[in-house]
Design a protein around this nucleic acid. Structure first.
Lengths: 366, 366
DNA sequence: TAAATTGCTGAATCGGAGA
DNA sequence: TTCTCCGATTCAGCAATTT
């Protein structure tokens, strides 16, 4: 087992599966210690014929209003208890994903909001191959819902926008994800060759979740670990995981599964970075380095405006002086303006944005 | 006005728009008198400042007073009050549809369950043309959620299975509906030519709802009538409607609109059939789904170049990074390149184009 | 303050070919 | 020549918890 602990975070049981109830086990973890929680809690499907109280005694009359209300209450209590622990364990800039169906997802979402999580998106997992509706009494239940929320409104959560855009062929990723359910070789089997877990999630779903909202080296906690899809994808993608699972059979399947997994190589884990993360280049440096001369005239992208470069890296146009951004915004009457892509200069008879010069400097900095 | 009353149901104000608060007006309606409720309540968006597009144009946000609530608690009280009245007014075998976004839909769903409604499906309206995410900080919010619920678990609700199957080219209708947002001529305008209502729903959505879960002659109640899409579609499809709207401007637009509508104007509704094109498959999906592994090496069709797959579905070769098309073009010194037919991988000792994998995914999507 | 950030649809307009 | 038609192009607009 490639267990280790994270320096400075107490004693995090990284890359292990904790044996026990998720609320009890989370209580043992320190505050503000994990980056991401992924949770696939029980769906509360047992509401139909057989209703059980917390002590496992059976509720008889299902059409009784009081009983029915009580069952939602019980589910809500459980939900709010584990969500509160998950929130405590999350770092201030951490985030959570929960997944559910119409049976439980409204309870989950309302609980998240009441506990001061801040919902960022709800995401629809649209199944390419759902179970048909055999009786023709309802619509084919062809999707499940994920909720992505940060610990609090002010959290500076992780979102790898550019990587997701790449995953989606260059257009920004939407809130509806089309992915097949988990079948075939990917589906974990028990000793009898039967499916080991009734609701195993596809690795593709977790892959997208982790690429989108975590970075290599992050700690991912799954309080309902099951057969370990979260751990498997975390390990492949170079994240650390903590699993909690109280069922010994599921734990055994997950241990075997995780032992087989290999991490992808480092280059493969690199994803497209945002421009914000690239080193800042002051406009003045272009002037200092002689790429633009003081007195040279820049023109706006739309050709309607012109401004003169000054020796200190500011621009002057008519009665406006200031940074490339400020002058551009003023001339356009706009609240803001990205001067790098707005202002152009002449090179070889062509008019090109000054951002080209910044890219040259950045390339030299590599 | 084609007002009439329904025999034996007290004095139902059929095919009229009631002026007032929806809770007050519903209180005046008799118990167990309507077949279907469609409700598009305020979403309780919690918007702070102003948002601009990259081109500096301002996003016309929903900042109307009717959408603003002091807290979740206030919103919940309002929600439970109108839902309770709606339930009282519903016939025993009646049903309700509510629509919302992640801001409010979890409150709605939990309230429905607590009030003994029985959820039948949640339905995802996937927008073909949603508003993009301009800041690149979240996923494009490309869907809204509808909840379909019967008055109680024992209700023998209406579901026109065969009609929906027909609407869906002969295959069972799923819980995700792909429909465009309301634009163009369908969008109601005020005297100034501005959109009359910020959140007008497309007729195609109401058409599907009513075909699915009501019959000609049924009474459909909409407590948040707005500019009257529910009434318009009800009238076209030979259902009776009752609208409630407290805003005089919205009522006026709705009255004018409804006067224009003719029953069974099927031609006007036919335009919303989705077109079937070859579905786009992002290359990233091959990676997410494990058909190609991050770190795996692809070779060019001519055997002269190689590139490594990254976890976000980009390729890296020498000093070029980017999409399969971009990297192919760069290596060949060509202006463009179809990466699907250019890049190959090994399978069973043979080198085959990655397009084979795309074909597999498309076959699954049928 | 600096600098980053948008996809799709339907209507309107424009330009070229053919009547 | 002038008009019409059609395809190509441009442009406006959309429920947003947006560093």
């Amino acid at each position: 087992m490639d267990t280790k602990t994270k320096a400075g975070a107490g004693a995090l049981p990284l890359n292990t599966i904790l044996d026990g109830d998720c609320i009890d086990e989370m209580r043992k973890l320190p505050d503000c210690s994990v980056d991401l929680v992924f949770a696939d809690p029980p769906y509360n499907l047992q509401l139909k014929g057989h209703l059980h109280r917390p002590d496992n005694s059976r509720v008889d009359a299902v059409d009784d209003a009081w009983d029915s209300f009580a069952s939602f209450q019980t589910y809500d209590q459980f939900t709010r208890a584990w969500l509160a622990e998950a929130r405590r364990v999350l770092k201030p800039n951490g985030a959570i994903w929960v997944i559910g169906s119409y049976h439980n997802v409204f309870r989950l979402g309302a609980a998240l909001q009441d506990l001061q999580f801040w919902i960022l998106n709800d995401v629809v997992w649209r199944k390419t191959n759902p179970m048909p509706n055999f009786r023709g009494k309802r619509l084919t239940n062809a999707h499940e819902t994920l909720i992505w929320a940060s610990k609090e409104e002010a959290s500076r959560y992780t979102f790898n926008y550019e990587a997701l855009k790449e995953l989606n062929d260059g257009v920004q990723m939407r809130s509806d994800w089309v992915l097949p359910i988990c079948t075939g070789h990917e589906r974990e089997k028990d000793e009898n060759g039967e499916k080991a877990h009734p609701t195993q999630k596809p690795q593709s779903l977790l892959h997208r979740v982790m690429i989108a909202t975590s970075n290599p080296g992050d700690v991912v906690l799954d309080p309902f670990f099951g057969t370990g899809t979260t751990g498997a994808v975390a390990k492949m993608l170079g994240r650390d995981y903590i699993g909690i699972e109280r069922d010994a059979d599921y734990r055994r399947v997950a241990e075997t599964r995780l032992a087989r997994i290999r991490k992808y190589d480092k280059a493969a884990l690199e994803v497209t970075r945002p421009k914000r993360a690239e080193p800042r280049v002051p406009f003045g440096q272009l002037v200092e380095r002689g790429m633009l001369r003081p007195g040279e005239v820049l023109t706006s992208l739309n050709g309607r405006h012109a401004a003169k470069v000054r020796a200190d890296g500011t621009l002057v146009a008519d009665d406006v002086k200031g940074s490339i951004h400020k002058v551009g915004a003023a001339l356009e009457g706009a609240p803001s303006c990205n001067g790098w892509t707005y202002w152009c200069f002449k090179r070889d008879g062509q008019t090109v944005p000054i951002d080209l010069l910044r890219q040259q400097i950045r390339a030299e900095m590599q």
